[in-house]
Computed example of a mutant assay.
Amino acid sequence: MDTTAQRRFLLINPNTNPLTTQRLQEVLQPLLPLNVQLRVQTARFGAPYIACEASHAVAAHACLDVWTTERGSPQAPLNGVLIGCFGDPGLFALREVSACPVTGLAEASFIQAAALGPFAIVTGGERWKPMLQRLANGLGYGDLLRHIETVAPTGAALQADPDMALRCLGQACQNAAQTGVSSIILGGAGLAGYARLLQDHCTLPLIDSAQAGWEVLLQQQQVIAGPTAHDGFYAPWVGLPEAFSQVPPKGHG
């Protein structure tokens, strides 16, 4: 195998806020190995920042929209897809249709945190709590997720005011550290990079969900020669963009 061949990964920001995309790129770009390209795309439609069930549902569609467009591009096939939202909208759908590994910020963080023992989550937006608990249960980490500490400001508000975010998240991490867990996930695309800034003020390991997403995806990546029978949709489409119909149906064999 030619180890110098470039590997190509796709990071999808399901939020429509380009500043969130920029933050993810700034945090992850220094982590890229040689011969690795990280293509970063922002959702064409949906909410500026996902913070409820409805925006999460639309974001799953937006992720598929980005994937179909990228799949149809003339560039090299993808080696992995990262969903840049701590809630992983569209995770199971993208994993079903894509021939390469797919993970999200939440799943990857759960994987890293579970290796240390029971864990807690700190994130912005009060509506996230039941959504994240359901996701953890669905991914098999429900028993290890012992506490979810949500702060009133949404991830968008925290991203817009770094000083407020550090104060608010710092107190939330201290609260979460008192719940008998082994680590704390600082979850949210807009919170990328904050774990490093807060680590000195917390007695437990802080896991940056964006960094965890990239590290886990890189471990799972594999070389894909091109679209395969495992890469495509089962369903025909009506009324969706042309890129959806250009993806050949997946075989049932």
Rank of each mutant, 00 (worst) to 15 (best):
Q171K: 11
C173L: 06
L132W: 02
L198E: 02
W128I: 11
L145R: 01
R134E: 10
L139G: 00
L186H: 04
A176R: 01
D163F: 12
T203Q: 14
Q219G: 07
G188F: 06
N175E: 14
G170I: 06
I207E: 08
Q171A: 15
Q159P: 02
L145Q: 03
L135K: 12
G193E: 07
M164W: 06
A192M: 07
A172P: 05
Q133I: 10
L132F: 03
C168N: 10
E126M: 12
Q220P: 02
G142R: 07
R196C: 05
T154F: 09
V122D: 01
R134T: 12
V216I: 15
S183L: 08
G142L: 11
T203A: 15
T123K: 01
L204M: 05
D143K: 13
L144P: 01
M131A: 06
T203V: 14
V216K: 12
L144F: 07
I121V: 15
D200V: 10
S209Q: 12
N137T: 12
V151S: 09
P118G: 04
C168I: 14
G117P: 13
C173R: 03
L144W: 08
V122K: 05
Q199E: 00
F119W: 07
V181D: 00
G142Q: 06
I184T: 00
G117A: 04
L206G: 00
H201S: 15
M164N: 11
N137C: 13
K129P: 01
A165P: 01
L135M: 14
V122A: 00
L218F: 14
